[in-house]
Structures are given as structure tokens and as C-alpha cells.
Design a protein around this nucleic acid. Structure first.
Length: 457
RNA sequence: GGGGAUUUUCCAGAGUGGACAAAUGGAGCAGACUGUAAAUCUGUUGCCUUAUGGCUUCAUAGGUUCGAAUCCUAUAGUCCCCA
């Protein structure tokens, strides 16, 4: 029942989104048909919902550049073709929101789900209390149980936006980790791990110079134990994770082989990186979050809108559900249509995360700001009258309060460098003050070319 | 347990008594050029009512000195060697 309702919603979303695609690329009837066909198939034959795609799941993942390593490609390919497989991915609830880096994982799960496989989302309520040492130079701060549980709740809500949560198994490894008996654990699990081998693995190697505590060394055991439990209790056969998790996932496969004599598999996905090898989704302000409270939908959209030319196709492949066939077509005329394609890509990703309606709002705002200077829908900031002195507010204060700069000194530098415009006039007078009535109708402050905010009282 | 080294601004990393708000590079921000891209060039990057001015910073707490990122003592973090 619930699943059906979801389908209806999805059709609607996709329908809207495709009307917009029409707008963007004038006419792309192919995409439109593909998606509709897929959704009708999905409605009619839910158990065969992967029929719309002629590619095998693993082939698709590979073609999208998602696969980094697998423990036995052909066996996994067969497994996914012939069985309904239970797949698990672990998420560490160390923050209060997913970020763009998680998006690859979440969308991979969505792809799996659409191919009819069963998804287990494991939240590391237990492991988060340790912190994963992989690819980190320093130990993470230790979180309290309350924070972790709060984070898990937020993660669940965000995951529900992508995945059909009713079809997923949601678990928290605190369930089995917190009650563990130390001695039993060592005897049953610890005995299977060679410290020599662990230290040789990539994720611990670079920690050897900077210090690694026993506390963190346990991370691998716990993650492996998770997989063991899931294999035993939920018949989970495959673990998917970021390529930084590769050693941990392999350790799990090995543990299960030793303990349960079961054959399991690990798949690692590529991290989302820019063409010059940096991690994507990080800015000077930190990560790009999926939570609209932490990263506004407009900023989220703009992040992808402004992505490097060389990363556009990669983003299409990894972060959208657009078919590979269409992406191939885009690739052919990327030279001509770079900006249109960027727009489409940014829109698609935003609508996956925040819904079609919000994404089209962001698209609209962006077009207005960069196109015909229509500042109607610019993000607004309310300035309290308390900040006024003698019925006036200084421009440096105003810029700071609007969030465009961190301090008055920074505001001052920006003005001196000609980086601030107010209502489209470059400001050079850094002593300028505004009165209450100036702000009544709102003034539009622009910092550089891209940051724009309307201040009202 | 013993010995040694180290801790500098967002990051890396110079500075070892005054010329230090602290070289240089990276990253960021702004300007020019552009396509809301990249590359390049220029400027800028602790805070303060706008500053040939003031204030707070070089792990923390004391001390020596006219003067301390720099010297001394204690404490903490990190790393290396020996056990």
C-alpha cells in the first residue's frame, strides 16, 4: 500500500522534473519516454522493476564509474542477476547530516533497490563512539550517546528522501556492540585478526607515524563483526562502502569465511573527487550538506552549477539517475552546451535531494540573479533594529550581519577591493550608513559575482 | 619506565631576544579576463568606526628582561629511540 503511494508521488516528481528538462534542453523526448516507461513498468510489475534497464546492475555501476574494487567481480555479477540479494552499507553518525560525499553511497543503494535488492542501512551508533581511523590524520572527538542518537534520527529522515525506507532494514550496531562481553569478543572475534596484517593495511599504515590508539585499532574488528551479525541474522551477503573502507570490508568478508564458512562479497565505490583529485563537496565553509538548514538549497544548487567543466559528466553518472544512454548523448555535445548541461545536472541532483519543487525554485532564482537582474527571490536576511546606532547602521556592520563577511575588517577589505555592490552600484565609501527606511524595501548586497543577499528590516 | 625531539595564524612550514600580526607555498576571498567553468595575472587573508593608530595571538601557566613566538621552570598534547 505504502509502496504504491510512493510510486504515485515519484511519477509526479519525475513528470515535473521532465517538464523542466524540456525547458532546459528544449526537447529531449528520449529521456522523457525512458523515465515514463520505467515508471509504468514499475507500477505494473513491481517485482520486475529492473526490466527497464537492459544493463546488468554491476555493468551499470561500473559504467557509471562507481566501482572501485570488488572481491570477485564475476561472482558478484552472477549473484545480483540470479538472486534477491541483501546488501548493507554502514553510515557513521558522527555528524548531524549527510553531506555530498555520502550521496554516492545513498544513490548506489537507490540503484540497488531499483534492481530489486534488499537494502540494509546500518547506522554505526556503536562504532561512532570510537571513530574510524581510515584516511584521517587525527582522532575524532568522542561523541556522547545522546548526540549519536540524535544524528541517527536525522540520517534516517534524510535517507527516507531517496530510499524506499519501508523496504529497507534500518539497524543500529549499538544494538549488538554495546552489550558485548570483552573476553568473549576477544576469544571469538579477536583471535581471527592478525595485528601484523592490520597494520600493513592502507588505512592504518599512514597512521603509524602520527599515532594510532588501540581504541581506534578496534574499528576494523567492529565493522567486521557487524557484517558477521548481518550475515547471520539477515542473510546479508554483500557490503558496499566507500573505497576508504576497503580494508575494513575485506576483513569482514574474511571473518565470515572463517567463522560461518559463508561466502560474502565486498564492493567499494569510488569517492567523489574533482578532476584534479580533490575530494568533492568540500568548500572553505566545510562540507556541502544535504540538510537544507546547514546548506541552503540555493547554495547546494550553485555548488553543482559551478562545478569544473571536466567533472560534469562524472556528476551526471555518479549523482543522477539519468540513463547512461542519455548521458552519452550529453557527452557528445558537452562542448556546445556546457552551461545548459551544468544547469541540468545541478537541477537533477538538487531535485533528488530536495525534491523537484525546491530544485526548480533554486534554478529560477539562479537564472534570475545571473540573467536579467531580477532580485525578487534572492535569499533574505532580516536585520534587527537593535543593531542600529543613532537610527543608522554602518555598511561594514550590515555586510557582516548579512553573513557575507565574518568581521567588519573583512567587510572593509571587500569594499576597498571593489567587491561589494549595493543595488547594483559599486560601493567605495566605507563610511556609508543606512537608515531604517532604506532597509524597509530591502537592499540587495552583492559580494563578488555569486554571493547575493537581500537585507530587510 | 629511561632518553630525545616537537607544539607557530585555515593547512603545510620559516622565524631561536627588539626591525613580528609573524617569511614562503597551498587553500580561501576580491579585482581583471571569461561561460556563474578552468587557466592566467593583480590584490588580499587576526580583531577593532574606517587606522604613518589601538588591541589580542606563536600549546597552557608562571618567571627572567626596558622588551619574549624566541631564554628559563612547570604542565599538557604529539612523535622517535631504548626497555
Amino acid at each position: 500500500m505504502r509502496a504504491t503511494r510512493r510510486c504515485g508521488l515519484d511519477i509526479f516528481t519525475i513528470f515535473c522534473s521532465n517538464i523542466l528538462i524540456f525547458k532546459i534542453l528544449d526537447a529531449n523526448i528520449k529521456t522523457y519516454n525512458n523515465i515514463l516507461t520505467f515508471y509504468f513498468l514499475f507500477l505494473k510489475y513491481p517485482e520486475k522493476r529492473h526490466c527497464w534497464c537492459y544493463m546488468k546492475l554491476m555493468e551499470e555501476l561500473e559504467a557509471r564509474g562507481l566501482l572501485a574494487q570488488t572481491s570477485g567481480y564475476n561472482e558478484i555479477l552472477d549473484l545480483f542477476e540470479n538472486e534477491k540479494v541483501t546488501v548493507y552499507t554502514g553510515f557513521d553518525p558522527t555528524g548531524d547530516s549527510f553531506h555530498v560525499g555520502h550521496l554516492v553511497q545513498l544513490l548506489t543503494l537507490l540503484r540497488l533497490q531499483r534492481f530489486g535488492h534488499r537494502i540494509v542501512c546500518l547506522f554505526g551508533g556503536g562504532t561512532a563512539m570510537i571513530g574510524d581511523p581510515s584516511a584521517k590524520n587525527e582522532m575524532r572527538p568522542i561523541l556522547t550517546k545522546e548526540t549519536i542518537n540524535k544524528n541517527i534520527e536525522k540520517f534516517k529522515m534524510q535517507a527516507a528522501k531517496f530510499l524506499d525506507i519501508s523496504q529497507c532494514v534500518i539497524l543500529n550496531n549499538a544494538e549488538w556492540l554495546c552489550g558485548l562481553d570483552y573476553i568473549d569478543f576477544l576469544r571469538e572475534i579477536g583471535i581471527h585478526f592478525s595485528v601484523n596484517r592490520m597494520l600493513a593495511s592502507e588505512c592504518y599504515k599512514n597512521r603509524l607515524n602520527s599515532g594510532l590508539t588501540f581504541f581506534e585499532l578496534n574499528y576494523m574488528l567492529m565493522q567486521s563483526y557487524d557484517f558477521l551479525i548481518l550475515n547471520k541474522n539477515y542473510d546479508c551477503q554483500v557490503q558496499i562502502g566507500g573505497s576508504d573502507q576497503w580494508s575494513n570490508m575485506l576483513a569482514g568478508v574474511e571473518l565470515i569465511r572463517k567463522k560461518n564458512k559463508n561466502k560474502t562479497y565486498a564492493i567499494s565505490t569510488n569517492l567523489l573527487t574533482t578532476s584534479d583529485g580533490r575530494k568533492m563537496g568540500k568548500t572553505e565553509k566545510g562540507a556541502i550538506w544535504l540538510d537544507s538548514q546547514k546548506t541552503s538549497i540555493y547554495d547546494f544548487y550553485q555548488y553543482f552549477r559551478n562545478i569544473d567543466d571536466g567533472d560534469v559528466i562524472k556528476c551526471f553518472k555518479m549523482l543522477t539517475m539519468i540513463s547512461l544512454e542519455d548521458i552519452e548523448n550529453y557527452e557528445c555535445d558537452i562542448e556546445k552546451n556546457t552551461n545548459e548541461l551544468k544547469e541540468l545536472m545541478a537541477f537533477e541532483i538538487t531535485s533528488l535531494v530536495h525534491g523537484c519543487e525546491e530544485a526548480s525554485k533554486a534554478l529560477d532564482v539562479s537564472r534570475k540573479i545571473f540573467g536579467k537582474k531580477d532580485y525578487e527571490q534572492v535569499p533574505q536576511v532580516n536585520i534587527k533594529y537593535d543593531f542600529f546606532k543613532n537610527d543608522e547602521i554602518k555598511i561594514t556592520d550590515l555586510i557582516r550581519l548579512s553573513g557575507l563577511s565574518k568581521s567588519n575588517s573583512e567587510s572593509l577589505r571587500l569594499i576597498k577591493q571593489g567587491g561589494i555592490t549595493i543595488n547594483d552600484l559599486v560601493i567605495t565609501d566605507y563610511g556609508k550608513c543606512f537608515k531604517e527606511e532604506d532597509l524597509k524595501n530591502g537592499i540587495v548586497i552583492k559580494k563578488g559575482k555569486k554571493r547575493i543577499i537581500k537585507c530587510v528590516i
